[in-house]
């Protein structure tokens, strides 16, 4: 079990919803990460998400959200935002949500100490659609946010 997880969430068959998986695949292709970091495409795991997050030290999730902002806008949510259900989830396909998975892990005493979510505003979630250009352009800024998160994490979290 690697202590740090960077995971993409979303359905690659549904247009912009595939952003999370695409972002983590790009991240893995561009960087060499140490043995303490796992990069994962989790798809739309429903409540099974809890099992993938349990007993990690820190988790970064990348997901597409339904927001007022123009498509491709990135927003960062922390654990409190997620638990207070301030993340504008954009579909019912992976309910129960990230918030419920975190509640379950807190109850079980194995929730990650640090949880951050990069939410990228999506435009179209139709089955069979390609990803919109605005979302493709959001890949690079998301990579930077993920690398910043990791750099900050290494300053604050002793890994042994």
């Amino acid at each position: 079990m690697k202590p740090i997880l960077i995971a993409g969430i979303g359905n690659v068959l549904r247009g912009d919803d595939g952003f999370g998986p695409l972002a983590v695949q790009t991240l893995a292709a561009r960087h060499n990460f140490g043995p303490e970091i796992e990069i994962a495409d989790l798809g739309t795991p429903g409540l099974e998400l809890a099992g993938f997050l349990s007993c990690r030290r820190a988790v970064l999730l990348i997901d597409c959200i339904c927001a007022e902002e123009p498509a491709g806008t990135t927003r960062i949510f922390n654990r409190e935002d997620i638990l207070a259900q301030q993340v504008p989830a954009r579909s019912g396909s992976h309910e129960p949500s990230i918030a419920e998975a975190l509640f379950a892990l807190q109850l079980a005493g194995c929730a990650p100490a640090i949880v951050t979510l990069i939410g990228v505003a999506g435009h179209s979630f139709k089955f069979g659609d390609a990803m919109s250009d605005a979302l493709l352009r959001a890949v690079d800024p998301t990579m930077e946010l993920a690398c910043d998160w990791l750099a900050q994490l290494k300053d604050t979290l002793p890994l042994n």
């Binding site: 079990m1 994962a40 495409d41 349990s54 379950a104 892990l105 079980a108 005493g109 194995c110």
Partner: peptide
């Protein structure tokens, strides 16, 4: 219910060892 998360990890690990990754 609380202990089941550890079980979940172990079962997933077998799927990942054979399937390359899990999910998918």
């Amino acid at each position: 219910y609380m202990q089941a998360f550890e079980f979940h990890r172990k079962a997933s690990q077998v799927v990942a060892m054979l399937g390359g990754k899990t999910p998918h």
